[in-house]
């Protein structure tokens, strides 16, 4: 059964001035544990779709169902709570909290979830070890390379044990080596944690690893390709 379902999703920016149709009736269903890439040219609506699924933005029309719950009817506070409990985000520009160390960045989301201190410590260390940064726990983002920061971001995204990880062009600022390492890591976490991964990407290296590739153009899904893994 689909854990994520969008129905006739529309998003129109600047409706009152010059309307821009970022999404034009997107309907899709994602099964639990999928490793899906959303691809398409710039402006095709990839990030907008991810934002809708993640409850960061509300559609102009249509619905997003998570476990058959329509999250588009949620209030702002309900959406924040929903994201905290169910979604892990990885952003293109890492978006770590600059005043916190790598360890604190990973721990932070568990603090928001009011997890016990020992559980936070064990989980944060486990994830930082998994992303190969056990030696860098006390470093702040500015002391880490782009690849290392993105690894911390992945660790943070998984710290809350989310059911879904939404990654918006996670490899856009990374070199080939860092990209390969990050993709290995995410695939491993997808298998071990059974988290559902959805990427928006231009990156062929990411597309090659995805088990399902959705192609968007002008806010519409133009192809949906599932591969044998």
């Amino acid at each position: 059964m689909a854990v994520i379902r969008t129905v006739d999703l529309h998003k129109i920016y600047d409706e009152d001035t010059v309307p821009v149709h970022a999404l034009n009736g997107v309907s899709l269903a994602v099964e639990e544990g999928e490793f899906t890439a959303i691809v398409g040219p710039s402006g095709s609506g990839k990030t907008t779709l991810l934002n809708m699924i993640g409850g960061l933005d509300k559609p102009s029309r249509g619905s997003v169902f998570i476990d058959e719950q329509d999250i588009t009817s949620y209030s702002d506070n309900q959406l924040i709570d929903f994201r905290l409990k169910h979604i892990g985000f990885v952003f293109q520009a890492y978006n770590l909290i600059p005043v916190l160390t790598a360890y604190e960045n990973v721990e932070f989301i568990m603090l928001l979830q009011k997890r016990p201190k020992e559980e936070r410590r064990v989980r944060a260390m486990e994830l930082l070890r998994a992303v190969g940064l056990e030696e860098k726990t006390e470093k702040r983002p500015t002391e880490l390379s782009g690849g290392q920061q993105q690894r911390v971001a992945v660790a943070r995204a998984l710290a809350s044990k989310p059911r879904f990880v939404l990654a918006d062009e996670p490899t856009a600022n990374l070199d080939s080596k860092s990209t390969a390492g990050l993709l290995d890591l995410m695939q491993e976490l997808n298998q071990n944690e059974n988290a559902t991964f959805i990427f928006s990407t231009h990156d062929q290296r990411v597309i090659d690893r995805a088990r399902r590739v959705l192609t968007l153009e002008d806010g519409k899904i133009v192809s949906d390709e599932t591969r044998q893994g």
Binding site: G54, L56, N77, I80, D81, R83, L84, K85, I87, F89, F91, N95, I97, I109, L112, Q113, R156, S160
Partner: peptide, 8 residues
């Protein structure tokens, strides 16, 4: 970002 990751 803080709101996105769940800071109310």
């Amino acid at each position: 970002m803080l709101m996105a990751i769940g800071m109310n």
